[in-house]
Simulated scan of single mutants.
Amino acid sequence: MTGLFDSTVRDAARLLPRYVVDNIFMSRKFNTRFPNFRPMTYREGLALIEREQRA
């Protein structure tokens, strides 16, 4: 009922079915396009963002 008045709630309810099953990321195309990409931890990523914003 809330979704009738609040678009955020309406959008969230519409997206929930997407999370019923796991999303599988096929990395072959990504790795071909970005061969030097190195995954990092959240901590490393946040530290990088902080350094970039200070620069």
Score class of each variant (00 low, 15 high):
1 M>K: 13
1 M>H: 13
1 M>G: 11
2 T>K: 09
2 T>W: 13
2 T>Q: 08
5 F>A: 01
9 V>Q: 08
9 V>F: 11
9 V>N: 07
10 R>F: 09
11 D>L: 10
12 A>L: 14
12 A>N: 08
13 A>S: 04
14 R>S: 09
14 R>A: 13
16 L>P: 01
17 P>V: 03
17 P>F: 04
18 R>C: 06
18 R>Q: 12
19 Y>W: 08
19 Y>P: 00
20 V>W: 04
22 D>T: 07
23 N>F: 11
23 N>T: 08
24 I>A: 07
24 I>S: 06
24 I>V: 13
25 F>N: 04
25 F>V: 05
26 M>T: 02
27 S>W: 15
27 S>V: 13
27 S>I: 11
28 R>E: 15
28 R>T: 14
29 K>C: 06
29 K>T: 08
29 K>E: 14
29 K>A: 14
29 K>D: 13
31 N>K: 15
31 N>Q: 15
31 N>A: 13
32 T>E: 09
32 T>F: 03
32 T>P: 00
32 T>A: 07
35 P>D: 04
35 P>F: 04
36 N>V: 03
37 F>T: 00
38 R>I: 06
39 P>S: 05
43 R>M: 06
44 E>L: 05
45 G>Y: 12
45 G>F: 14
45 G>I: 03
46 L>V: 07
46 L>R: 14
46 L>T: 06
46 L>N: 10
48 L>H: 13
49 I>W: 11
49 I>K: 12
50 E>C: 01
51 R>K: 15
51 R>E: 14
51 R>G: 01
52 E>N: 09
52 E>A: 01
52 E>G: 00
55 A>H: 04
